[in-house]
Each structure stands twice: as C-alpha cells, then as structure tokens.
Amino acid sequence: MSVLLLAELDNGALSASTARVAAAAAQLGPVDLLVAGPRAAADQAATIAGIAKVIHAKEAVLADGLATLLAGLAEAYTVIAAAASTTGKDVMPRLAAKLDVQPVTDIVAIEGATRFVRPIYAGNALETVTDLQAKHVLTFRPSAFRPAASGNAAPIEALDADIVSAARFIAAHRTESDIPDLSTAQIVVGGGVSVGSAEGFKLVEALGRTLGAAIGATRAAVDAGYAPNDWQVGQTGKIIAPDLYIAVGISGALQHLAGIQGAKKIIAINTDAEAPIVKIADVALIGDLFDILPKLTAELEKSGLKR
C-alpha cells in the first residue's frame, strides 16, 4: 500500500508530531510526505526515517484548499493520512467525502493493514474496525506513536499546484511561549479551576518550568480565563501521553480523563481524597495546592534535576 501523508506544520515550521504520524503511516507502506509550507519545513521533513519522498507545495492552511490539493494527488495512493490535529480534523473528513470514502480517525493502534483501533465515548470504549474500502482516509493520534528516527535524506519534489480557497485567512491569535509542545511533551503539569485566578495559575507554570514540562489545563480553567484555550486537555482539547502527568486541583471529570489516558504515570494534588482523579492516580498528595506547590517547586529546584 502506498501512503500519502500530510505533514503537520505549526506556523510554517514542521511539528514534532509529524515524525510520530510518519512512524504510524510507515507501518502501512512507503510514505510520501506532503509539505504545504515553507521550503525549510520540507528540508526538515526529508530527514524523517521511512519517508520515500517529500512533495513540497505552496503554503496552504485552509481546509478547502488543502482538501483539493490532497484530492488531486489521491489517485496514486491507497492511503491518505494526517495527524488527528485540528488541521487533520478540519481537512481529512472533507477529503474523504470528496473521495466517497468513510474515514477512520483518531487511530491509536494499528492491528494490521486494514484494522485500526480508535477511542469512542471520550475514550471510555475502544472500537476496533476493519476498513475494506479500496482507498483509506486515516488520521493518527500523534501521542499514541513513538516518533520515527531522523537521518534520512529523502528526495524533495516540487509540486506546482495553485491552491484555491473560498475561505480567507484573517489572523492567527497564537499563544506564544517557550514551554514545550503540549501534545508531545514528556512531562505535563495540568492546572484546574481551583487555582482561582490567572495569578494562581502561575504556581502551576512555575512547577512546570522547574521540570521542563508543558502546561495543561481543564476546560473549567480555560473558560475562567486562567489559561489559554490551547492548553486545554481532554475530549475537546489536546490528547496527551506524557511519561508523567501532574494534575493540580483537577477533579478528573471523564472529559478531562479522556485526554490523559495515555499518560504513563499520574500524580494528583488535591484537597479531596475522594476526587475521581485521586482514584486513578499512581501517587496522590492530599492537601492545598497553594500550600504545596511553592514548597514542591522549591524542593525540586534544590534537588538538581537532570534536565
């Protein structure tokens, strides 16, 4: 099976998740990677192991343009795939309908050439499906796959297709920060609404900084304005699978747990010993976050972490 994979870009730069979905796609066959963005991103994409060829196209970010671009290339491929990111979610169902294909999305495990596992009901059930269609349109959750190695030097082919879109891009409102990317981070510190204010959330961020961690938040914390929307973890936010997740003042609603099921270890800090998060945490410290966080951060600063 030949695979066409849409590279995941962030503000024109190749995202860390591209190497992860490339590893997933490579399980299905030789992968051609489409980079619709700056040449530098295509150059970087060519280093990902397992990529047969990079196809470099003009920058495209809007769903209708990207779907048309992919549809134009689709004939030569059996599988057309992308990350289950907001871009992949925007584009791939549109592409699938154009091609009259039922897509399989948010894949977390590949059990064979046509057999995939995807979570449903906020991850409270896993559905195993066989896709016997002639063409497959798929999205993979980056957090569920280990990144492909680098060191490749795949050829780069320029594609001279004009990308037309009925939609018009007006502005990006990005959350600029130097903290690690949430969806691929090894350590994540998450804060809930109980931090009480944006100021309170700084305690969570300080612990994160000490650990070199990404910062997550519950929907309640985002809605309250304590954290930006792209920090939201859960059914409708980001799906994460860090080695360590530290949940601070988070109750553990099932929609939040949907985002952290892949975490290897969960540590909970909560005043309530009966909170759902405490029931599933590997380690829990029952107490007041305002008391605990400053001390914990100071203690870890002192211990000289190897990061």
Partner: peptide, 15 residues
Amino acid sequence: EVTREVDSGRETIAI
C-alpha cells in the same frame, strides 16, 4: 467572520 479554536490558539477566517 469565524474565530476557530485550533491547536496553536485561535484563528479568524472569513467565509
């Protein structure tokens, strides 16, 4: 004019 919630924050597009 629609503001969309995306992985990098928010963005506004016109359709």
